[in-house]
Design a protein around this nucleic acid. Sequence first.
DNA 1: ACACGGAAGTAACGCGCGTTATTAAAGCGC
DNA 2: GCGCTTTAATAACGCGCGTTACTTCCGTGT
Lengths: 332, 332
Amino acid sequence: MTMSDVARHAGVSRTTVSFVLNDKPGAAIPEETRRRILEAIDELGYRPNAGARALAANRSGWFGLITEIVTGPFATEVITGAQSRAWGDRRFLLIAASEGDPAQEAAALDQMLEHRVEGLLYATSWHRAVTLPKAAREVPTVLVNCYDAEGELPCILPDEVSGGYKATRRLLDAGHTRIGFINLDPAIPAAIGRREGYERALREAGITPDPSLVVPGWATADSAYTAACELLDRPAGDRPTALFCGNDRMAMGAYDAIKERGLRIPHDVAVVGFDNQELIAAYLRPKLTTLALPFEAMGTKGIDMLAALAAGQPLDTRQVTIDCPLLERSSV
Amino acid sequence: MTMSDVARHAGVSRTTVSFVLNDKPGAAIPEETRRRILEAIDELGYRPNAGARALAANRSGWFGLITEIVTGPFATEVITGAQSRAWGDRRFLLIAASEGDPAQEAAALDQMLEHRVEGLLYATSWHRAVTLPKAAREVPTVLVNCYDAEGELPCILPDEVSGGYKATRRLLDAGHTRIGFINLDPAIPAAIGRREGYERALREAGITPDPSLVVPGWATADSAYTAACELLDRPAGDRPTALFCGNDRMAMGAYDAIKERGLRIPHDVAVVGFDNQELIAAYLRPKLTTLALPFEAMGTKGIDMLAALAAGQPLDTRQVTIDCPLLERSSV
DNA sequence: ACACGGAAGTAACGCGCGTTATTAAAGCGC
DNA sequence: GCGCTTTAATAACGCGCGTTACTTCCGTGT
């Protein structure tokens, strides 16, 4: 089923069919002819061949998306965001997972370039610096949830500082003044940014941050459990009445420590998590108030930036940050 | 950068380059010529154009994958499985989400057909019957985690019966004889199959299934909490010493009911979940022993079947079931 | 009557590549 | 020296489509 078949069936030339299909401006097609052609298309069940069209028009319509892992909530949200924006624009996503393996990453990139992607999105599962294979320079590239170690490629990052600020602010607003912070590995950008926000919120409220209330953890429930025990076992008047946790899994560990001590959430101890891992946050009892990493928004924004770059437009900003929304549930 | 450029640079014809690139059998290419060509490719940084190649060879290399939701663990695992198998075979996945909307589903299907996918995978988030748009018949199609209401399309399903059997068997082996079963909605295939397996295991152990030990739930932690309370509040000697839950979220609710009563897991009450939702199962305390739905395996199997169909080979079975592996953790 | 401009439609080229049919050269036996 | 096979390489066609340049036809004004 090709365009020629349609043309023959409608008694016109293939060119005319093409004009109709593409609403070619400047082509004068009488209503009657157009109708005949559309009818023929319908009767024959003709579908344009996207590949051939791409070849002739020299526009593949593809964007590439490379993530470390396809599994896991982060990637799926980025994919969802990018996907919805792309399809709406009749563009398509070639998705690949590097599985953290540079060889696979290079192979994926090769395939994408062979498919003539018009842009590339590179997303990581956690906020950090990355270095891309040189081949990535051959095509407009935008980093998602990571930034170029060489500082050249544009990137989209979550606003960690504002996230830490909002979490802390929420607890302050609920009347808490001794707020424990079970942070992530203190060396990573997320931990640094959130701590900055945490401290700023405290200072704004006239509270001098107490470093002993900040305990580093290692992103696991167990490590957070230990950290929470340490904080909760401080002498009564000095014990924090609220815990801000580096992620939801850690909040899970904190919950256990709190419950074990016969304390109640949120009455005795309030908890705020981070990441909004639905499966945890929405099913913990009580449900967890947490901040969401805006993966989906970063995905759509990524496609927007790529579309602009692919169209040759310059970028207004080389680094955009996206807000982490606070999701109110029942733990504050 | 086209093949002609390479040919010119190597001092041969485009045809020869093509032969080298495709290892054309029957084409006699002296080592020296081949070397010159490969060198030219390297120097020019030439990459074949996948689209043009597909057009000429009349093999798109694409498979389509339609899921209801991209977000959520099920889809990502199917994608991972399909993806890895497909890329290994130099085939690619055009992924779309229907979001449960028939219009979007039809649109996605249209796009896939325009991209001349050589096969279609259709996956659902939960085991049930589906009816596909007629257009799906235009291309080899395999259903994943669902089956054709009209019974025509081949499908891949989790072995629910064996799953229920294995869960129950595991608890029996641990010495339990009164095993409560907090099931899913009793009308769905998963609930029916697992109950069948549950009862078979009991009978094999010489135990007559007690219907009052089977409580339906609604796939939420709350509903399972209620159900678990009901079972745990039976008189002492009649209380189940183990709970088999319809999914991990429900196990989460059961955990709460158990802990509330001062009972310990697994000493007083053992728990087995279903679905292996990592974020829950691996971070509950104690970690949850559960059965995994073999989404990834179903994805790879799906690609295998599509590859066979696309190659014109007949299928040995129209319905294949895949085992649900038991993941031992600490709740039994 | 003629030139002219616009409407309607088409032939023909090229996108980058796979593939077939064909040619040119080289090797070989006699 | 001549036919014949093998080796090495290429010209040419087609995949399905976008696009440009061109043709034909008709109505209008003078």
